[in-house]
Each structure stands twice: as C-alpha cells, then as structure tokens.
C-alpha cells in the first residue's frame, strides 16, 4: 500500500504482475463460488442446486459486485472517498420508496415496487448532491456526515410509517441484508443490478472524467450534468434492486473501491475489473462465514459484513486515508 510516495516502476513493467494478481483474484473468486454452491444443510441434489444454491450464489455475487461498482461511481462523482449508497442515504431512500408504495398500493407487483424504490433512490441522490454542493470543497468528512444524517432522518421516517401501518417486518427485511431467503424466482430483480453494472463498465471513462471536476470535464467535451445523472441512475437502480431482494449491505461499496483505488489507482476502466472481482469475492466470503460459523444455523450476512468491513476500513483509515485521495 502506498502510504509513502516511492518512485513508481514504469507501467510497462508494473502492469504484467498487476494482471497476474488479477488472475489470482479471479481464481480465488471461482473457488469461493464453488464453495458457496457446495455448502449447505441439505444433501446435494439437482433440485437443491437449481432452486437454492445457484440462485443464492448468483445473488451474492451480483449484489456484491454491483454495490462495489455503485460505491466507486459515487466516490468518483462526488470526489469523496467516503461516499457509497449506504453512507449517502441512497439505500434509505429506496427503502422509503418501498414503504410508500406498499402503503398506497398494497398489492403492487414487484416491478412497480422496484420502480418506486429506484425513483426514491434517485430523488434521494438529487437531495444529497444538492446538500453537499453547499459544503466547502475541502470538507471531506462533512460529505458522508451529511449523507449519514440524511439516511438517518429518512430511515426514521420509514420506520415511523412502518410502525403505524404494520409493515415493520418488511422494513426489517430491507434494512438488514440476508441471503437466506433467496431461492429461484425470488431474487431475479438483482439481474437488473447486473445490467446497470454492465452499463457502468461501458461508460466508465465518463465517470473518471467527471471526477476531474466540472471545468475539466467540460473542456474534454463531456456533458458533466448528464454524466452525473447517468451515474446516479445506475447507483439508484443498483441500490433499489439490492434493497428489494436482499436488503441493505453496508461497507461493500466503501471498502472494496477504496482498497482497489489504492492499489491500481482511480481510473475507473482500470479499477473496475478489480472492483467487480473483489466485490463479488468479499461478499461471497462473508456469506460463507455467515453460513458456516454456527452451522447448521445462519448468521445474518449484514452482521459479518459489518464486523469485517468495519475492521478493514478502520485499518485503512489508520494507515493514512488522505494519502490515497
């Protein structure tokens, strides 16, 4: 980790080992995937595999990879290393959208709920961006603080509405990430996250350029506002589909992109393969731990992610965050 600033080896010699490490990471991911498919209480048979194990593994990977990507996009667009869907209120807004649609249209189909969640997340992103535009530019910690407060207020509003209307159970399911209920037919919305992630990979350069600020981006012929809108839409789709299907997962979007940009830099096109692999891998690992620690019982993955992510993040903070950004 580059805490001090040593002279770097030229890219021509530095890139080959970097690629080798990425291959190592991908092999690790494949092994984790295999483990995830094989671990479980029931005996291995075809039906268990297709209705439970594979969907769960896919859900974990999709959620982990896309949340990590959402974190990277938000960090680039807000030019702040501490912003992710869980620290900017985006997840809470998605939850509020879900509560509201369940109150007004109790029998709403899942796609409508998803739409409401996405719209609310998008509105929340706009509010968040408006609020942080008033902070002074050097205020790195003010930005996530505003996001956390915003998320707290919105989350409290959701909880209030849920208590009044007997929706606490649903709300809890959205607030705590949990993959134990994932079976075939109940997680497919997460593929929307996957689609949003693919879009993000295709337009990655725009987010890197947007991170250079409005003036440099305009100079390079980028419509800065449109890039912001596109990025925030992708983030909102990812947040809403995650909250709807498996619930909130904090820290993935914070720790993974920060770790990656420290090692390979913040050029989105270069960082994204790493972010995808590490996002999926870290979430798979946490899910495996959650499933095996008290075998045959499960811990909520939110707990594992919270402890592990919190610890890793703490170490990164103590090792000098400001050097990395």
């Amino acid at each position: 980790m580059s805490v001090s600033a040593p002279a770097r080896t030229p890219a021509t010699t530095g890139r080959a080992p970097r690629r080798a490490w990425l291959i190592v990471a991908i092999v690790g991911l494949v092994l984790l995937t295999a483990a995830s498919v094989m671990v479980g209480v029931a005996d291995q048979d075809w039906q268990i595999l297709t209705t439970s194990r594979l969907p769960r593994t896919a859900a974990v990977m999709l959620a982990g990879a896309s949340l990590a990507v959402a974190g990277l996009i938000m960090q680039l667009l807000t030019r702040n290393p501490f912003v992710e869907p869980a620290t900017a209120g985006t997840m809470e807004f998605a939850g509020l959208g879900l509560v509201l649609v369940m109150l007004t249209l109790p029998g709403a189909p899942i796609w409508l709920r998803m739409l409401a969640g996405t719209a609310a997340a998008l509105a929340g992103s706009a509010v968040f961006l408006r609020l942080i535009s008033r902070l002074s530019r050097g205020d790195i910690l003010g930005v996530p603080l505003v996001g956390l407060v915003l998320g707290g207020v919105v989350g409290a509003a959701s909880t209030f509405l849920a208590y009044r209307n007997d929706l606490v159970q649903s709300l809890n399911a959205w607030l705590t990430g949990d993959f134990s209920a994932v079976i075939s037919g109940r997680y497919e919305l997460l593929w929307l996250s996957g689609v949003a992630t693919v879009v993000a990979v295709v337009v990655a350069d725009r987010f890197t350029i947007a991170s250079l600020g409005h003036e440099v981006a305009t100079n390079l012929g980028l419509d800065h506002r449109r890039a912001m809108a596109l990025g925030m839409t992708i983030v909102s789709v990812i947040s809403a589909s995650t909250v709807v299907t498996v619930g909130m997962l904090p820290f993935i979007g914070l720790v993974v992109p920060n770790l990656v940009t420290r090692i390979v830099g913040g050029h989105a096109r270069r960082a994204l393969p790493w972010v995808l692999v590490l996002g999926a891998g870290a979430t798979l690992l946490c899910d495996l731990v959650a499933r095996t620690l008290r075998y045959p019982y499960e811990l909520p993955i939110g707990l594992v992610v919270g402890v592990a992510g919190g610890l890793v993040f703490l170490v990164m903070l103590l090792r000098g965050f400001d050097r990395a950004h």
Binding site: N80, I209, L212, L220, T261, G265
Partner: peptide, 22 residues
Amino acid sequence: AQDTQVPVRLTVRDLVTFGRFP
C-alpha cells in the same frame, strides 16, 4: 482553468491521455 486539484488517484499519463478523449 486555474484549479488543478485532483481528489482522484490518476497517473500523469492517465490525465494527459484524457486530452485525446474528445
């Protein structure tokens, strides 16, 4: 413009290469 603060980790070559983006 005057402001050349960059909060993102990019290399010098990355930045100069973006000059070709248009």
